[in-house]
Design a protein around this nucleic acid. Structure first.
Length: 184
DNA sequence: CTTATGATGTACT
DNA sequence: GTACATCATAAGG
């Protein structure tokens, strides 16, 4: 299966299989590699917590586009959060990347996360974008497009045991068990 | 460890 | 005007 096909599936499946996969980020010749450890699924009309619940808007349009694109938004006026789109074009869906583990480029991550303790480097959606230097300019970026130099994705090499919980920080559709975390 | 709270920008109603 | 898909702090146990 190629990368695009991986994301061109039901968002719940993608969110689970994203656990253990890798994000590569290259900045000025330095490379960061992280392993995704926590994700959340966001969909459309069946998900009141989703930005896409009420249809297309200027902010959420990437969620309605083709799979394998980066959707970044500003949360609480302070923090960027990063998603990867799923499902065929026209069908909204995205997986929020909530946390990851540094695999390579730890020095650079630490420089981007001055003052953060080791275990707090990438353990939240806002911290993750800060540690990977991902901001709103990445909104709409194609992970499988012509330019994969600054950012790319690599599938996991094995499956991981994971826990399922309710999603964090939302006030609607709170009962849906759509958060997935690699078990220690 | 826990809970509480202020900071902050913008999309949307 | 309101509501946030959050984080870093501070204070209490």
């Amino acid at each position: 299966m190629d990368g695009r096909s991986f994301f061109n599936r039901h968002t719940l499946v993608v969110a689970q299989e994203l656990l253990g996969s890798y994000l590569h980020r290259r900045i000025d010749g330095e490379e960061i590699i992280v392993r995704i450890t926590e994700t959340e699924c966001y969909r459309g009309k069946d998900d009141q917590a989703s930005h896409a619940y009420s249809g297309v808007t200027p902010r959420n349009r990437i969620m309605f586009g083709p799979p394998g694109f980066v959707y970044v938004y500003l949360a609480y006026g302070l923090h960027c959060c990063m998603n990867i789109t799923t499902e065929p074009e026209g069908c909204p869906g995205a997986v929020l990347i909530r946390a990851a583990k540094p695999i390579a480029g730890r020095k650079l991550i630490e420089r981007l996360r001055v003052g953060a303790a080791e275990r707090n480097l990438l353990n939240g959606p806002g911290k993750l974008t800060k540690g990977l230097s991902v901001d709103l300019s990445f909104n709409g970026y194609d992970l499988f497009g012509v330019d994969t130099h600054p950012f790319s994705w690599q599938p996991r090499d094995k499956s991981w045991k994971f826990n399922v919980t309710k999603r964090i920080g939302i006030t609607k559709s709170v009962e849906l068990p759509w958060r997935f975390i690699i078990a220690e």
